[in-house]
């Protein structure tokens, strides 16, 4: 059983936005809709770190839980998708999502690409796989072509990994061992604490 996941290695991410345009290009996502974004912390100072963020395809997806019309579904390989014909564009999923993944196209309720748009893990939607209808609403269906998301496949430094969680964990683990330091990507100390500021040290029990 595959379980699709993304992982972004902040030791590698150089904020080049390759993942962002790979996504735009592969899925022909309109201007103003960003299924994927690169986030940089501590920009311009020591400790600058970037990671690429999109829908995390949560196992217990808050968007799915709160959707008033139940338009979300989990595929068997763990991808969170939604039916745009049902979606009402209310934005409740936007409240629920911890990562800002849902996107709301700019031209009104019946805007481009439906009412709510988000990363599909390049798995299209509930239309016929690889049909023009599916592409028009959801973009590419690379999983049905035996490929992985364009963003991860094209990442400039192979920082962004995408695929079966078990497999990418192996890839990442190997790197961590080569590096000879922590296997975690984002512990509290890394993500929020600045080594120069002891008052922002990790809360008890957190990693790193």
């Amino acid at each position: 059983m595959a379980r699709m996941k993304f992982l972004c290695d902040d030791e590698r991410c150089i904020a080049c936005n390759g993942c962002v345009t790979a996504c735009k290009q592969e899925n022909e996502v309109p201007w103003g809709v960003n299924r994927r974004r690169v986030v940089t912390l501590n920009e311009g100072v020591r400790g600058e770190r970037s990671i690429s963020v999109a829908c995390m395809h949560c196992s217990d997806a808050p968007c799915m839980a709160v959707c008033p019309v139940d338009c979300f579904y989990h595929t068997e390989e763990g991808v969170v998708l939604h039916d745009k014909d049902m979606c009402i564009g209310c934005g409740y999923c936007f409240y629920a999502c911890p990562f800002g993944a849902p996107q709301f196209p700019q031209a009104g309720a019946f805007g481009m690409r439906g009412k709510m748009d988000k990363c599909t893990f390049c798995a299209g939607g509930p239309e016929k796989d690889n049909s023009k209808e599916e592409f028009a609403k959801y973009g590419s269906n690379r999983l049905a072509q035996g490929k992985l998301p364009a963003c991860a496949e094209m990442c400039s430094t192979k920082a962004l990994l995408g695929g079966d969680g078990d497999v990418i964990a192996d890839i990442f683990r190997n790197r961590a061992i080569k590096r000879g330091k922590g296997s975690e990507v984002w512990g509290w100390g890394t993500a929020y604490g600045k080594p120069d500021h002891p008052q922002q040290q990790a809360p008890t029990g957190a990693k790193s």
Binding site: C19, V20, E153, S156
Partner: peptide
């Protein structure tokens, strides 16, 4: 490049 691209190459 082993498949890798930056923003320009991916676009």
């Amino acid at each position: 490049n082993m498949g890798a691209h930056c923003a320009k190459g991916a676009a």
